[in-house]
Simulated scan of single mutants.
Amino acid sequence: MEQQNFGSAWHLVDAHIHLDKYTKSEQQQIIDEMEQYGVESLITVSYDIESSKENLTLHREHNNIKAAFGFHPEQQVLNNEAMQELRAFIDLHHHDMIAIGEVGLPYYTRKENPDLRIEPYLEILEQFIILAKRYDKPIVLHAIYEDAGVVCDLLEKNKIKKAHFHWYKGDTRTIERMIRNGYFISITPDVLYETEIQQVVKQYPLAQMMVETDGPWPFTGPFAGEMTHPQMIHQSIETIAKIKGLEIAKVYGQLLWNTKQFYCI
């Protein structure tokens, strides 16, 4: 897409990025180029307590960076002391927090280690769900394939409505359940070349969809060798519009509205 298209009708929000995981120079490049590429806001999710602290600093330095606090599940489970520290941080800074996240279940870690006990991760996830409910914040979820159904059980149990399943992959039955519950998903740049993601776009309503990079996670296809940058989302939106058979301006407008309404930006 040509740069001259990045006018007021072509704005976007990167709904899921790990901005703290970029180098300082990469962070500055992305921040400096947001206006150029029509990026209104970045929602930067956290990996652990230190990540949450870094994202809080980024938010306080830049109003268009919105911080979510949480614990990424694809790592060793938090012990009680570490969980209490993170909960205390969230309690103290919930006014600066746009969402709880990234939280969820360790799908890939369990694939590598089938003997890993899931129960401690479920207990921690439910604590985060309760925090999201307490502070009336959305929750950003790492939950794919069979894990998504388990997470849906916990969300339904706790009557959570504002759930964002980032980079979702899974079966049609779970997709239908998520749609009924009003949950949102976000689409990554691999929609350009991954048929699995393209199929999710076909199935999921545009009205419950957002777009993301999950940067600095690297992509292949047309993005091979490139630093993951929010400007890649323009190509994602172009592809979503083609899959949906909709005018691209309508898709831009809907995705932007979805994200700003969901996150109260």
Rank of each mutant, 00 (worst) to 15 (best):
6 F>V: 07
6 F>W: 06
9 A>H: 12
10 W>K: 15
11 H>R: 04
13 V>F: 04
14 D>F: 07
14 D>V: 11
14 D>P: 13
15 A>M: 08
17 I>A: 02
17 I>T: 03
19 L>N: 06
20 D>A: 08
21 K>W: 08
23 T>P: 11
30 I>P: 03
30 I>N: 01
31 I>Y: 06
32 D>K: 06
36 Q>P: 10
41 S>T: 14
45 V>W: 06
46 S>I: 01
52 S>H: 02
52 S>F: 03
54 E>Q: 06
55 N>I: 01
60 R>D: 00
60 R>S: 02
61 E>S: 03
64 N>M: 11
65 I>Y: 09
65 I>T: 00
65 I>R: 08
67 A>M: 12
71 F>S: 09
72 H>L: 05
74 E>S: 14
77 V>K: 05
79 N>A: 14
81 E>R: 10
81 E>A: 15
86 L>N: 10
87 R>H: 14
88 A>V: 09
91 D>V: 15
91 D>F: 13
93 H>F: 05
94 H>G: 00
94 H>P: 07
101 G>I: 01
102 E>D: 03
103 V>F: 11
106 P>Q: 01
107 Y>D: 01
109 T>C: 10
109 T>W: 14
113 N>L: 12
114 P>V: 13
116 L>H: 07
124 I>T: 14
127 Q>S: 09
129 I>L: 02
130 I>N: 02
130 I>M: 10
131 L>E: 04
134 R>Q: 03
140 V>M: 09
141 L>W: 09
141 L>E: 05
142 H>F: 02
142 H>T: 04
149 G>N: 06
151 V>T: 00
152 C>Y: 10
153 D>T: 13
156 E>C: 13
160 I>E: 02
162 K>V: 11
163 A>K: 10
163 A>C: 12
165 F>I: 11
168 Y>S: 01
170 G>M: 08
171 D>C: 14
171 D>P: 15
176 E>Y: 13
177 R>E: 12
177 R>T: 15
179 I>G: 01
180 R>S: 15
181 N>K: 15
181 N>W: 15
185 I>C: 07
187 I>P: 05
188 T>H: 09
190 D>Q: 05
192 L>D: 14
201 V>S: 09
201 V>Y: 08
202 K>W: 12
203 Q>C: 05
204 Y>Q: 04
212 E>L: 01
214 D>Q: 12
215 G>M: 11
215 G>A: 09
217 W>P: 01
217 W>A: 11
219 F>N: 00
220 T>H: 08
223 F>M: 02
223 F>K: 03
225 G>F: 01
227 M>V: 06
228 T>P: 08
229 H>Y: 04
231 Q>W: 09
232 M>L: 09
232 M>S: 00
233 I>F: 05
233 I>P: 02
233 I>M: 08
236 S>H: 12
237 I>L: 07
240 I>V: 09
241 A>K: 05
243 I>C: 14
245 G>S: 15
246 L>K: 11
247 E>K: 15
252 Y>A: 04
252 Y>V: 00
259 T>M: 11
261 Q>R: 02
261 Q>H: 02
262 F>L: 04
262 F>D: 04
265 I>K: 08
